[in-house]
Amino acid sequence: MTKLLEVMDLKTHFHTGSGVVPSVDGVSFDIKKGEKIAIVGESGSGKSVTSLSIMGLVGSPGRIEDGKLAFEGKDLTKLSKKEMRKLRGNEIAMIFQEPLTSLNPLFTVGNQISESIKLHQKVTSKVAKQKSIEMLEKVGIPRPDKIFSSYPHSLSGGMRQRVMIAMALSCNPKLLIADEPTTALDVTIQAQILELMKDLNEELETSILLITHDLGVVAEMVDTVMVMYAGQIVEHTDVYTLFREPKHPYTKGLMDSTPKVHMLDEELVSIEGTVPNPLSMPKGCRFHPRCQFAMDKCVSEQPELMELNDNHKVRCWLHEEKEVNLHDLVKS
């Protein structure tokens, strides 16, 4: 598979009155054509800022300080505003958590979808309308010609998210960024939307970058996972390896504290403490104050993202000399 997007050492910082917040601090990864990849993390981990940086939507006081965002060879950080506008919505599209705030309440749904089609493709209004209705049908909206002329407020949350997806996919983007697309939805509706995204990914070969906090959604949806903590990627591997044998204590902690709905007797082991204040990040490994395996080295020196093999990267001193199995480490 060819690389569609390559993110290299991305640093996005926010310059606030009380200091510099390094929301994204040296993030590198790539997305291949047709791949489904997820960034998992808790609030403040920098997962959303990463996606906004790719879209060029980081506003003041935030700024991309450093790094490269190569999308099919073009560096997105070097593009002018006009060039970026051309690309956004056309080649990279995004859907957000709360579809009601992302839709304009004063325009009909159809108006908003055909607007983006007309903006990016040279077609007549009639063709744009036809295309919009086609898209609405594709995302599973019943009576699409009727919904075309209705307003966002008259639709349910699930329907609105379907409309957002229809709009995002109307120009056949190569990459779809979905920032917590199902967090605001009820669980039966969430299942419908995830299924829809999976189907569309297969049918249209759109790559998907999913931003989420829910390990269940990750396990269900994607091929590759990156776990973020305090602005950095702490673990990066394929979904099966990650769930079978997490190598970073934070990843393991997240898994242990996720309720296991498919097991009868479950134990929830929580990670003690809270996410660090971004204005005063801990020295050494940023996770060390909460880590049960922390050693002297973790307090003084920050680990790099080490490569265990071609497919597995982890930011942790435990594996410096040789790979360690965390499950065994807990037992002993």
Partner: peptide, 15 residues
């Protein structure tokens, strides 16, 4: 039955 089935299970081998 539907509500239970709709919960995403945190284990990719059970997809």
């Amino acid at each position: 039955e539907g509500l239970v089935a709709a919960i995403p299970i945190p284990d990719p081998t059970l997809r």
